Deep mutational scan, measured.
Amino acid sequence: MKVIFLQDVKGKGKKGEIKNVPDGYARNFLFKKGLAVEATPANLKELE
């Protein structure tokens, strides 16, 4: 799953980066803790 990092995550990505991460990791950790959002067209547009 492609995500946009909202904060630096040690060993995974830095704020503003767009990266592919495993689905479970994204849903169960990154999204729940507010560290990233899914890289949807709407979210990508907001990032610009």
Rank of each mutant, 00 (worst) to 15 (best):
M1D: 02
M1G: 03
M1Q: 06
M1E: 02
K2W: 15
K2A: 11
V3D: 00
V3F: 00
V3R: 00
V3Y: 00
V3P: 00
I4N: 01
I4E: 02
I4S: 01
F5V: 00
L6K: 06
L6P: 00
Q7D: 07
Q7K: 14
Q7W: 10
Q7P: 00
D8I: 03
D8A: 08
D8G: 05
D8N: 11
V9P: 00
V9S: 02
V9H: 02
V9E: 00
K10T: 10
K10D: 13
K10I: 11
K10N: 10
G11N: 09
G11W: 09
G11F: 08
G11I: 02
G11K: 05
G11T: 05
G11L: 04
K12Q: 15
K12R: 15
K12S: 13
K12Y: 15
K12M: 15
G13E: 01
G13H: 10
G13T: 03
G13A: 11
G13N: 02
K14M: 11
K14A: 09
K15Y: 06
K15T: 09
G16A: 03
G16Y: 09
G16N: 07
G16E: 02
E17N: 05
E17T: 06
E17M: 07
I18N: 02
I18E: 03
I18Y: 04
I18R: 03
I18W: 03
K19V: 11
K19N: 04
K19F: 05
K19S: 07
N20P: 07
N20E: 13
N20S: 13
N20D: 13
N20K: 10
V21K: 01
P22A: 10
P22W: 08
P22Y: 08
P22N: 10
P22T: 09
D23E: 15
D23L: 15
D23I: 15
D23P: 12
D23F: 14
D23A: 15
D23V: 15
G24D: 15
G24M: 13
G24V: 12
G24L: 13
Y25R: 05
Y25G: 03
Y25P: 04
Y25A: 05
Y25V: 06
A26D: 04
A26R: 02
A26H: 03
R27W: 10
R27K: 12
R27M: 10
N28T: 08
N28Y: 14
N28R: 12
N28Q: 10
F29W: 11
F29H: 10
F29S: 04
F29G: 03
F29I: 11
F29P: 02
F29E: 08
F29A: 05
F29R: 05
L30I: 01
L30E: 00
F31R: 01
F31M: 07
F31K: 02
K32I: 13
K33T: 09
K33R: 14
K33F: 15
K33Q: 13
K33E: 11
G34Y: 09
G34E: 06
G34L: 08
L35T: 02
L35S: 02
L35H: 03
L35G: 00
L35E: 01
A36W: 01
V37G: 02
V37L: 11
V37N: 03
V37Y: 06
E38A: 11
E38S: 07
E38Y: 06
E38T: 05
E38F: 05
E38Q: 10
A39Y: 13
A39S: 05
A39P: 03
T40L: 06
T40N: 10
P41V: 13
A42D: 13
N43K: 10
N43D: 06
N43T: 11
L44W: 07
L44E: 06
L44N: 05
K45I: 11
E46Y: 15
E46H: 11
L47E: 07
L47V: 10
L47I: 12
E48I: 14
E48P: 09
E48D: 12
E48H: 14
E48V: 14
E48N: 12
E48L: 15
